[in-house]
Simulated assay, not measured.
Amino acid sequence: MLEQLQSWFPPALIDLFVLSFWETLVMVGISGFVGALIGVPLGVLLRLTDHGGVLQNAAFNRTVGGIVNAVRSTPFIILLVAIIPFTRLITGSSIGTAAAVVPLTIAAAPFIARLVETSLREVDSGLIEAAQAMGATTPQIVFKVLLPEAFPGIVAGFTITLVSLTGYSAMAGAIGGGGLGDLGIRYGYQRFLPEVMLAVVLLLIVFVQAVQSLGDWLVHRLNKK
């Protein structure tokens, strides 16, 4: 059995698995982090400027919401190709792990924004009205009422985003984005090694399960506080 496994996965191929898994972690981690830096404030703005919000502004809300919806509705594989000039401007290349981070971040930001907006909508309006009655400023309402109350929902949404980004990162491998998707395409498909494709799929399943379990655990802990 051991000899069979060694014939399927020689040391050089195992090294490729390790490198590809690391590239996937980098792509998902960086794009998730930067996407959150953009998406969370965007989601807060969408909630504040919505009907009945603290900074109600229908024109701004419709404009930003339209842009967010446009990016979210664009299939990721099309987004990858459409922003190649922008990707080259940022990273100097359209292939590789660094290049894949750019479209992944652009895909993640509006996704996170809508999830944050949805979580903020679930905050009891009575809490906001009480804070306003006590003279709280908009930043105080955001940082002391909205975000703390919605934090478990935001964490749950961010977990969903990371899971989606894992799938997107594998898709990026189809155009040389690196990571496990690239490994599966090059060895599992192009070189007709089904055992490599199977191993890639299993690794992605285990990774997604680990991310989802960690996110569920954090949400459970936050809800108990």
Rank of each mutant, 00 (worst) to 15 (best):
V18P: 09
S31Q: 01
G43H: 07
T24L: 00
L48A: 00
F17A: 03
G32D: 10
L37N: 10
L25C: 14
T49C: 09
V34F: 11
V28G: 10
H51A: 15
T49G: 02
V18S: 09
L25E: 08
H51F: 13
V34W: 11
I30D: 01
L25N: 08
V40H: 08
G29D: 12
D50V: 08
M27E: 03
T49F: 01
D50G: 14
V44L: 14
L37E: 04
M27G: 11
I38N: 04
F33P: 02
L42N: 02
F33C: 01
G43V: 01
G35C: 01
A36Q: 08
G39T: 10
I30L: 09
S20Q: 12
L37D: 10
M27L: 12
G43Y: 09
I38M: 13
L45T: 08
S20K: 04
F33M: 06
V44W: 12
S31P: 00
L37G: 07
D50Y: 03
D50Q: 10
W22V: 06
V44T: 02
A36C: 13
T49V: 07
V40C: 07
F21I: 02
W22P: 02
D50A: 15
G32L: 07
P41K: 04
R47N: 13
A36K: 07
F33V: 15
V28Y: 11
V28T: 01
G35V: 01
V28W: 04
A36S: 13
S20E: 12
G35W: 00
G43S: 02
V40T: 08
G35H: 00
R47I: 12
V44A: 05
V18G: 03
S20F: 05
W22H: 10
I38R: 02
A36M: 14
A36T: 10
V34G: 06
V26D: 05
G39Y: 00
G29Q: 06
S20T: 06
G43E: 03
V44I: 14
M27A: 13
L19V: 15
L42G: 07
T24F: 00
G39H: 00
A36N: 04
W22I: 05
G29W: 09
G43T: 08
V40K: 01
L45Q: 08
F33N: 05
L42Y: 09
T24M: 05
G32F: 12
A36Y: 11
L42T: 07
G35T: 01
I30W: 09
W22T: 13
V18D: 09
F21D: 00
R47Y: 14
I30A: 08
H51Q: 15
R47A: 12
L42W: 03
G35F: 00
F21Y: 13
G29T: 15
L48P: 08
L48E: 03
V40A: 10
E23Q: 15
V44Q: 09
G39V: 10
F33R: 00
V26W: 12
G35N: 00
G29H: 05
E23L: 03
R47K: 14
F33E: 07
S31L: 06
E23S: 11
G35D: 02
E23I: 07
V26F: 13
L37T: 10
I30G: 03
L45K: 03
S20P: 02
L45D: 08
G43Q: 02
M27Y: 08
L25F: 11
H51T: 15
V26E: 12
V18T: 11
G29K: 04
L19N: 15
L37A: 06
M27F: 06
D50S: 14
F21H: 04
V34Y: 03
L19I: 13
G29A: 13
P41V: 12
T49D: 10
